[in-house]
Amino acid sequence: MSPLAAVAAQVGETTASTAGEEVLFWIIAPLAVIGALGLVFSRKAVHGALFLAVTMIGLAILYIALEAPFLGVVQVVVYTGAIMMLFLFVIMLIGVDASDSRVETIRGQRGAAALAVFGVIVLLVAVTGRAALPDPVGTAQAAPEGNVYAIADLIFGRYVWAFETVAAVLITAAVGAMALTHRERLARRHSQREQSERRFREGDPKDAAGMPVPGVYARHNAVDTPALLPDGTPAESSVSPVLVARGATRLAEEFATDVGRLGPEPKPGEAESTAERPTEPSDAATSGLPDDSPAAHGTEETDDEPEQDGGDAR
């Protein structure tokens, strides 16, 4: 018997004594509602996604409590693990920093929406509350060999056609997504040699050896901070124009003073305290990016042509 089936069997035993389940429910349900409200009211999409993940995990636990261990696991693996990650990727792709304005632009939308939502809540809660529902039968009878076996039996038995159709839908969706996001390359890709030659021919000779890389500092090294030139002024060209356009760069001076302050008395503990900074709103931009290889990333950003990379990143 697989571990999953063991869990299911355990949960199945709890149906007799509902006290544990009620405790579980009253812990999980508020968390799920808080997660849902967080999704709706967080200004940043990233936060919303994380709140939603909370709700989904809560739901997964409730599924297990509801004698559906297989669905609970699928909920975690597929929804929270795959779909939510897909959302996060797209959020990163189209600008993680942008926070939504709270001003409603459609006149009367907010009031009408509140009214409609309130009406639906009252309606549905009243209906479900008033309904005289019997006590649950439990799935022990329907799944004598365990939940997973029973579900497999149904999917590949009675629902096999639906299963095949859904498989076709998935394939179609994948192809459709590729067709939607695919772009033809309109111009030939320039080789490294051509780029180098052009830099010598047209660019500033002092950049012939390569553009400056972004700043590297004792407590912070990232693509969003310009390097400091020998005279102390920041080198604007060391930061990717994509980040500049997005408004996601940070001031070099902030770190320049840091250098001065940290210079005489370096403390090893300071690095620990600044590690929490990524949770700040402006830092969220870097949270999805690898912090370990700043130099490599920076060169790539500055050396590569802005127009090629920019289209995707902006």
């Binding site: 929406a113 409609a116 639906v120 309606l123 209906v127």
Partner: peptide, 24 residues
């Protein structure tokens, strides 16, 4: 027809609610 998908969503939600009311 405002063109705002959220207005349409509101209409849909209201309509769905009315359908439930009618069924009840």
């Amino acid at each position: 027809q405002t063109g705002f998908v959220r207005s349409y969503a509101l209409t849909m939600l209201t309509g769905a609610g009315l359908v439930v009311v009618a069924m009840l």
